[in-house]
Structures are given as C-alpha cells and as structure tokens.
Nucleic acid binder design. Structure first.
Lengths: 367, 367
DNA sequence: CTGAAAGCGCTTACAG
DNA sequence: CTGAAAGCGCTTACAG
C-alpha cells in the first residue's frame, strides 16, 4: 500500500464525514421537530437501512469505523428507534408486565420501583396489571392483556404467582415469566423464591429466646402459600426446642388490618392465652396492636407481637413492630434481570433470605 | 323487485356465510395457535382488508350486514387487532403514562387503579413512570419516555404536576396531558383541580367549632403548591372567625413521617403551644402522633391533630386520625376519561371537593 | 358502501 | 463487512 493510497482513503473518510455533517445540518433545519427515522439516518450516514438496523441491534458484523460514525449521527439527531416498528418484526413489544393481586400498596410500588430500576437503561417499559384471582375469567383476562400488547414477559407476585392454572397458561402461550413466591412451586427457571419459612423461623427463635412458650399464629388465608410457609417456619422454630403449635392457637386472618383487630379477643378467649403472637403480615399485626389498645391491653407488656414484611407501617404504629424484613425491592430487581436474561449484579446475589428486625413490640413474657 | 330477486339475494348471503364458516374451521385447524391477523379475517369474510380496518375503527360507512358477519368471525377466531401495527400508522401507541413523584405508595396505587378502571374496556394500557424533579435531566427523561414509546398521553400527579417547565415541554411536543393539582395552574383543559384549600378550610372550621383558637400548621415543603393551598385554606377558615395564623405557629415539614415526629417538640417549645395542629398530610400526622407518645403526651387530650388525605394510615394509627378525605381514586378516573376524551359518568361529576372525616384525634381544647 | 395501492419504521431472509 | 427486496399488521389517501 503506497502513501498515496493511504492519503486517498483518509480523504474519502473525511469527505464522507463532512458530507454527513452537512446533511445532518440540513436535516435539522428542514425536519421542524419531526423525529428522525432509520431512513433519515441511513441517508445522512450514506449507508443502507440494514446497516443502521445492525447497529441498533448491536450486530458484531459492522466495522468499527461505520459504527462510530453512525452512532455519532444518531446522537446528534437524537434518534431513537421506534419500538413499535421493531416490535412488529420481533414477536413482542418492548413491554414488561407486572401482574399482582397483593392489596398492599407498598408492596406493589416497591416491586414496580425495583423492576423499573432494571428497565431504565433498557428500551423496555413497565405495564402494571392488577388482577383478581376470584374472577371467573381471570386467566383469560391476563392472556388477553399479554397477547394484545404482545408483552415480552411478565413478573408475577404473591398470591397470583402461586396460581398453577395461570402458570400453565403462560407456558402454553410461551410467555416469559418469573414467579416470585414463598417456595418453589414450579420449574426453577420460572421461580424466584423468597423463603418465607426461613424468615418465620427467625421470628419463632426470637420469641423463644425471650422466654415465650405459648405462641399463637395469626394466619393469612389458609389457601395462600405464603401463609402456609410462614406457619411452617414458625412450627420448625418451635420444633427445634421441642415445642409445637397447638391448632387452637391458630387464628385465621386474611392479611388485612381488620382481621388483626378482631383476632385479639379470639386469642384472649382461650383458656390459656398465648404470651406472644406471630402475625403473618404487618398489616394484621398493626390491627392486632390496635385491637389490644381497644381492649385496654398493650404490647409487649400484655403480649408480644411479631409481624412479617417490614413495610412502612411497622415503624408507624406504636409500639413499633418487631417483624421480618423481606427485601422486596431487591427481589423485584432480580426478577427483572432474570426476565431480561441479564446477569444479576454481585450485590444482589446475597438477597436471598428475609431477616429479623427487632423493635418495641416484643419482650419477655409476663410471669 | 321480484320475489325471485329476493330469494337470490338471500341465497347469496347464505352461501357467503356458510363459506365463511367453512374457511374459519379450516383456519382454526391449520393455524396451530397462531393469532389471526387482518388478512386472515379478510380472506375468511371474503372482503378486503380495508373493510376489516373500517370495522376495527368503528367507521360508519360499513353495511350492517357486513359488519355483523365480520364481527362474528372476529369473535370466533379471537381476533385482536395488533396495537403496534395500528400505532405505527397512528402517531401514537395505545399506551397511557402515569407520571408521579409522590412517595406515598397508597396514592400511587390508588391512582393507578382509578386509571385502569377506565382503561380496562379500551385498548389502552397503563405505563408507570416515577420521576425525580430534583434530577437535572428530569424533563429530558420524561420526554424520552414519551417519545420513545410514543405515548397517547400522560397523567401527572402532585407534585410533578405543578412543574411549569414540564407542562411547557408537553405542550411543545404536543403530548396530551392532564395535570392533577391542588389549584388551577395552567390551561383549564389540562387541569384537574383537587381544591385542597376547600378541604383545609373544613379542617379549620372543625377545630374552631371544637373551641380551638391557637392552631398550628405543619406544612409540607413550602415550594409544594398543595402545601401552600392547604395553608391558604386553614388561614381562610381562621379569618372567617377573625383569627389568623401566626407565622410562629407554622412548622416546616416535608410530608414524611419523620418530619411529623420531630415537629412535636417544635410546637411544644413555643411560649404558648397550640391546642391543635393541622398537618398537611396523614403521614406527618402519624409521625406527630408518635412524637406525642414518645414525649409522654397524647391526642386529643394534650393536643388535637388533623391530617390530610385519609389514606389507610389514618385508620391504622392510634388514636385514629381526623382528616380530610380526597377522592384520589375518583380523580384518577376523571383524569383518564378526560385524557381519552370520553364523557365523564354522572356519578363522578360530584367528586370535586375533599371532605372532612372526624375520628378520634380531635377534641375540645384542654382549658 | 367497498377496494387496490402505497406506506408507517423497522427486520428477516438472501445475496454478495 | 454491506445492501436490495420483501414483509411484519395495520392505516391513509385515492378511487369508484
């Protein structure tokens, strides 16, 4: 290769670049706020649409020179590929769904935020979809939602994540999905397990260490796996010191404040009331605390109370609630990473188990 | 027209129908779960794509015979028009955005639910987009969000709804938007006013009727219009009985629990502490109640407390909070109706002003 | 009331 | 490493 050739090539490159700069300027004057399309970029860069498409999709078979030149033009014009046009060719939209039925707003918003943290640097957006498992056409509705907007995938949170018929439908229509649930319910590749039994066992250990022997359980709906798992953890903790959970000491709640409130008299009507109650979630524990007060009692003097979730309410009530912290935000992030098949950051690897947070609602039993 | 002609037409129609039934059956056998497209429907119905398109878009210029025949086929095959393909032709996707920065999860989830109530029977879905007004590129980020997915429109909630630069940007890119805010800030067609001053005035009247004369105000961030409006309402209520709000009796909070908690000592450090405090939201009022307890006081014996919002926390705390109810769900519904330019149902017309809910945190002042 | 052609902004084969 | 053609599933002119 002679020096002349090199000069010529440099010259060509420079010409092409300056031509691109000229065209870009022209375009900006004429476009009047219209957004650039793949055609505009191709014309200005002097390459084919297909090359632009390759760059959008990070194809390796584009020369570094072309790629950087085109990328500069893209930035200059503020070009964003139209996700609808892309979605029309791929078999999906650039949309992720969050399907939930948990009535706790903080759980929902925290999950959204966790997922959005991960989606933010991508081209995906988050669609929210509350649902009602009791509705007769609930699965059909979700199928419509997914197929209509051709979602890339969905994340399911408890309790709708526990629904086997729903999981089967998702499998059937080949919709990517991650089920966040207290325990492994289906294929591991679709599961994100929160290990509620492990958390509940810590609650049990805490109460036992304080000296409690007669411990009650305020459950969620018995059909909810999370409530079953929390009970299982409590029983495991009791079994470790040769205690067991007497069925009379189980009161059925529904995860709502009111069921906590009304549980108080049920426990205190027992011949020997428990000295501590483990509530299957914070909301019921908050109701339980209010029920205590309404009946002239208080925690932890008259009875110790432990919640589950560590949502905001745990710190708002009085006494502040001893509870089990579940890293909801982190689980949501992990779910999003897994859905997008992205590597999960190191610092999220640890967030696998819930942990105990001791506050003011627990103490030694009154003799 | 002879009888023969009529017979022939009926015969044609019947032939066409039975042919369609035959083709539909064939299609279902061969499609193997593939979703029907406009082409499939057109072929089976024996009409052009354009006619199907007209039916999808409710064009009046389609004969009732054709329309009903085609609709039957659509239902039979479970046909759903692809919103991405439609969006590619229209200048927007079938997506609505909810842009919020309110940290209260219940506010967010309630707003989402209200909007979804309205979107459910439509082809639109809801995209959530939290934001941070303090971020330097916050407006740019929102513009990207809107333009990338080519949203049909957005609903803004306080305080981001108060941002004039954001409103200007939306105007500029011609993005439909509804701003839910405490007071009319911009063009009426974009505003949905919650009339916070009216609510606050009721709080003032309630306290005055109980006999309070020295009333404190725990504000939100002074830059927030909602906090200003709630203060304005309080002042109006006081002015009605020739009282006024002494600036010393205003403590600055930030709508968060902790600022309520720490406000207690500030009020009680005054030479003459107020006998009642109006908190600019429930979350601060809950903190205030906890702060009272931590300092050995309680409401309403030592001081009356009023909140604003009537979120769940108002009933969870002890004493249960007297507060101002804002129909958040209904406002979100109205916003969605207006965005879609749908008529607002009669029963929503009334939901224009907030109202007082008296619970246990207010009483007559201690002499 | 109905339809054939061209196009929305991209991508997938296919070819070189 | 690069490109011309055809297509994704719809709609907009235009024509009749």
């Amino acid at each position: 290769m002679t020096e002349g050739n090199i000069d010529k090539r440099l010259g060509d490159k420079n010409n092409r670049l300056s031509e691109a700069v000229r065209l870009a300027k022209l375009w900006k004057e004429q476009s009047k706020g219209r957004k650039a399309t793949i055609n505009d970029i191709a014309k200005i860069a002097g390459v084919s649409k297909k090359t632009i498409s390759r760059i959008i999709n990070d194809s390796p078979s584009v020369s570094e020179t072309t790629r950087s030149a085109v990328k500069e033009i893209m930035n200059d014009l503020g070009y964003i590929p139209n996700p609808q046009a892309r979605g029309l060719n791929f078999s999906h939209a650039f949309l992720i769904g969050l399907i939930y039925d948990n009535p706790n707003p903080q759980y929902v918003v925290t999950s959204q935020e966790g997922m959005l943290d991960v989606l933010k640097p991508t081209e995906y957006e988050l669609l929210v979809h509350p649902c009602d498992r009791a509705a007769p056409d609930f699965i059909e509705k979700i199928r419509d939602f997914i197929q209509r907007q051709r979602l890339y995938g969905v994340v399911l949170t408890p309790s709708v994540s526990e629904d086997e018929a729903l999981a089967a439908m998702l499998q059937d229509i080949e919709c990517r999905h991650i089920r966040i649930a207290s325990v492994e319910l289906g294929k591991p590749e679709h599961m994100l397990v929160t290990h509620d039994a492990v958390g509940a066992q810590q609650a049990a250990r805490h109460l036992i260490e304080l000296g409690h022997k007669t411990i009650g359980y305020l459950s969620g709906r018995p059909s909810f796996r999370s409530s079953q798992e929390r009970q299982r953890g409590l029983e495991a903790g009791l079994a470790a010191v040769n205690l067991s959970l007497d069925p009379h000491y189980i009161v059925e709640g529904d995860y709502k404040f009111e069921s906590g409130l009304s549980a108080v008299e049920k426990f205190f009507d027992l011949p020997v009331p428990p000295t501590a109650v483990f509530c299957a979630n914070d909301q019921m524990a908050a109701g339980f605390l209010q029920g205590l007060r309404l009946s002239g009692r208080q925690a932890p003097d008259d009875i110790s109370v432990v919640g589950y979730d560590d949502f905001r309410v745990a710190q708002n009530v009085w006494p502040r609630l001893t509870t089990i912290h579940t890293p909801t935000l982190e689980f949501a992030r992990i779910a999003a990473y897994r859905l997008l098949e992205k590597p999960i950051p190191e610092n999220l690897q640890d967030y696998k188990a819930p942990w105990l947070v001791v506050r003011d609602s627990t103490g030694a039993p009154r003799i």
